[in-house]
Write a protein that binds this DNA or RNA. Structure first.
Lengths: 342, 342
DNA sequence: TTGTACGCGTTATCAA
DNA sequence: TTGATAACGCGTACAA
């Protein structure tokens, strides 16, 4: 009853070891800790592997070692430029390392996120990078019980699951409003799209700043759950003007909306900044080259991704970061679109 | 010498099977082909799995079955909006399915691509989606010897490795120039950044169209290897004006450059389209809401990603697409920026 | 520094 | 429809 499966042509570690004249485990060590081999055997295994075109079987490795070298990354959107920058940072940091990335898209749904989390964990990831601080209770419980470094990115808050890197969207938004107030603006509109948790906190920051100045008026706020776009910026700005024709400034929760608002101003022949000041959020590349240049709140997205990945690696290698929560801050980039002749 | 490793608390298939009162293989079948079980056992295994909180071990599964359910995706850039749309299509198509995605970034390097390809293949992917038709000879050889569906995306050409979906960048570019010629433009500049193979083919298309009209002049062409940006669009346009002050139109290889050129025109108080017509490429969302609206060549990026993923799935399920090469075409979106009063 | 023995958790194969 | 057996390819633990 020879119901063996043995595939004959296949190159396994055993084949490499045989050709090199060593035991399989020695060949195995060559790929993981080459410095533990004598120089002679090291060379023999190396050339044998090359000659046979050996490709390690990652599944077997993962099964035997009970771990993998993939870092799971959960982000809410692939389309959003903001995450593209974060991702670039993550890929850059992990590129030279032994770790690879498993990326998934939660589509701004924490239920979806929970599902993906379970999927990821079935693969025993080396580490995890997740977006934001609003997870389901189950997600949190799962992550807290898992034994791998986890970094929450994009924002900071109390009680990190493990580590955290980001900034305060509330403070950033409030700083943007403070800038507009300092420019002499009083009727400052707010344009928001998608309204995910971080955008919501920007709205909170706006409201706090306006309340502090005794200038808050609900008619100044226009939001929608619709995903953002430049076109939407124009639409929302038109809505805002309809509700509050006397505005002298508008704060947009992202730069696409700001650009859309600028175009809408052009269409209506409204002068920016003299008639309407505009401030965006994220400081995408185009903000500094539009006409007029657009003010925005710069956030350190690339650094966020890069450092989050680095925190994972450092932890895996036993050098846990001293500070589990990193505030990357932000800066208000004051440009022509909000330069009022007070 | 009992150096067993047996972890006690762990829930394996065996535990589930024991609780359900069936053999492990029966429990295994429940997760793969539930309809092959009798109704009674099916229910018993199901409740046992739920009760124990069983999570399948993907590494063991991959090792035993010699395959995985991940589709590898190789793209040259994460920052480029163009790929964000393609990715969204891929994720959307694969989302409901059993397959997950392994994404890697080649950074526009075919050597990097080859390295990543080897890495992916060590995981025995269910399928592969790669960008473009310019792979190294080794990459091609590797892919041709692999037994899984492979789709090349973004462009089409002769001799697909397996399947292909995209469009002709040469034709698309030529169509854009034909449009400008039809508008009465004669001195049509060309702005190119990054100059990857597909951009190069757009340049070829431009040159062919201009030669056909006996209007080609090397001074009209400005290119750089630098990655694209809106700011760069302004810079390149300024360079073009310096070399050829008499241009009456500019074709930009992407929309960021086009927007940058538009802003540069504003800065110089050059009327668009009356003095300078502008046409971009890709038709990103903002093109239709700028002032003036910007003409562009629309490409079906989302569909490309979605259909590429679908082709992989169909092939895996035994329904191989009738046509291995799919041309998604393009369309020239004629907007204000190129509407000349002939 | 190198090797022996065996387990990792699942599925393919064959038989009933 | 169900089950027994072995195999998937590698790493861990321990010994030499």
């Amino acid at each position: 009853m020879a119901r063996k499966r043995i595939t004959p042509g296949k190159i396994r570690l055993t084949e490499v070891a045989k050709l090199a004249g060593v035991s399989p485990i020695t060949a195995s060590r060559f790929f993981r800790t080459p410095e533990a081999l004598s120089v002679g055997k090291r060379a023999r295994v190396e050339s044998a592997a090359k000659e046979l075109g050996y490709v390690p079987n990652l599944a077997a490795r993962a099964l035997a070692s009970q771990r993998t070298e993939v870092v799971g990354v959960l982000i809410p959107s692939l389309t959003n430029n903001v995450f593209a920058d974060v991702l670039r940072g993550i890929y850059d940091a992990l590129d030279g390392s032994r770790y690879s990335i498993q990326l998934a898209n939660t589509r701004y749904s924490i239920l979806q996120e929970e599902r993906l989390l379970r999927l990821f964990l079935a693969q025993k990831p080396a580490g995890l990078i997740v977006t934001g601080i609003n997870q389901t209770a189950d997600s949190r419980a799962i992550m807290e019980s898992v034994d791998c470094p986890i970094v929450q990115i994009m924002e900071i808050g109390p009680s990190p699951i493990d580590m955290m890197i980001g900034f305060s969207h509330f403070d950033a938004s409030r700083a943007a409003i403070a800038h507009l107030l300092a420019q002499g603006c009083r009727r400052i509109g707010f344009l928001g799209a998608r309204m995910d948790p971080r955008v919501q906190r920007r709205l909170d920051g706006y409201q706090a700043a306006m309340n502090d100045a005794a200038l808050f008026d609900p008619r100044l706020v226009v939001t929608t759950a619709v995903p953002t776009s430049v076109t939407l910026g124009g639409t929302l700005f038109a809505d805002l003007l309809a509700k509050a024709p006397d505005i002298d400034a508008v704060f947009c929760v992202n730069d696409d909306l700001a650009l859309g608002a600028l175009f809408e101003c052009k269409r209506r022949h409204m002068a920016v900044p003299d008639q309407i000041a505009i401030v965006g959020f994220n400081d995408l590349e185009f903000m500094s080259s539009s006409v007029p240049t657009l003010s925005s709140v710069r956030t350190n997205r690339y650094e966020m991704g890069r450092d989050a990945a680095t925190m994972v690696i450092e932890t895996l290698e036993g050098r846990r970061p001293a500070e589990p929560v990193v505030d990357l801050g932000f800066s208000v980039m004051e440009r022509q679109s909000s330069a009022r002749r007070s």
